[in-house]
Amino acid sequence: MKLAFGSPALDAASRLMTPFMLMFGAYVVVHGHDSPGGGFQGGVIIAACIILVRLVRGRAGGWMLAPERALAFACAGLGIFIGVGLLGPIFGGNFLDYSALPLLLEAPKARAAGSMAIEIGVAVTVTGVLSLIFDALVEARDDG
């Protein structure tokens, strides 16, 4: 199904905006500890970037995150979350206790690093799920 609003102006504008949106999304994820932001917000921004390219250039744009791959992204994010959480019991702490991680850091820094990993996992999940929902709703046809 073609769902591309391709026009030269839209194409140029999306090409101009895409790298900045991706970078801003990554910034919001990574800098969430010291400024408003975090995994959910950054993931939504990155997913918005993917959806923008998908709307403007359609599937031929090569930015299509196939549903299977988007689902793999979502599950990978959840796996990062659970994996980082399980590192706690492995190294003698509680579940999701990042201060037990062998990071050679002081406790607050280690906790910050652990929650950073979790935020990245959340961002990957949100990106995958939002693009998956968008693709599923767009691909749905009404002819059955």
Binding site: H33, D34, G37, G77, G85, R111, S115
Partner: peptide, 23 residues
């Protein structure tokens, strides 16, 4: 938590089990 953004500290550290469920 090492996070000056208190919302992130609550979300990803104090209540990370909650966030795991949401994810």
């Amino acid at each position: 938590t090492g996070a000056t953004n208190l919302v992130t500290g609550v979300l990803a550290d104090y209540r990370s089990y909650d966030t795991l469920g949401e994810t």
